[in-house]
Amino acid sequence: MEDTIQDNVCEESVFGSIFKATSKTVFNYIYYKFGNEEKAHDAVQEAFVKLWENCGKVSPQKAKSFVYTVANNTYLNVIKAEKVRLKYADKRLKTTNESPEYIMEENEFKEKLDRALGDLPENQRTTFLLNRIDGKKYAEIAEMEGVSVKAIEKRMHLALKTLREKIDGI
């Protein structure tokens, strides 16, 4: 009984902590799908305003998948995907004394990877990036996308295969 009172999503603090834990993933998720930052921001707004409006009906355990679903439905087939632009953390500059040739070659690889990512089907790209950037487990991605873990593994497999083929020019 006490648990339900404490864990009410309508509580400002509970809502706030759910927001802090989930909003970044929602943002990235929509961004990987459509490559549009503005739309991703709007999706976050939409999803969490809806969560607040339904805070009495959604338990904290269900809140995560609720916001994923709302965010996903916000742009269901309505917008055209744009090119996803990703940054790369520049760890190497400070720590390494690699040759200019190596750095050039490295940048070339990144460009190829970027291009290959842009050419991936939306669901493969989203799965790949959620795993690589956000460290999401296949099971969690499966929950977000509303498919089985097996389907996510398949997407991941195909994503890697396609990326490698594009990069190696096969």
Partner: peptide, 25 residues
């Protein structure tokens, strides 16, 4: 494949200010 794995580990998504987004909501 190994290279895709290691390079993709350094990728970052666009900046997202959680506090600002929460304030907006």
């Amino acid at each position: 494949y190994e290279r895709i794995r290691s390079v993709s580990e350094t990728m970052e998504a666009p900046n997202f200010d959680v506090e600002q987004a929460l304030a907006a909501v």
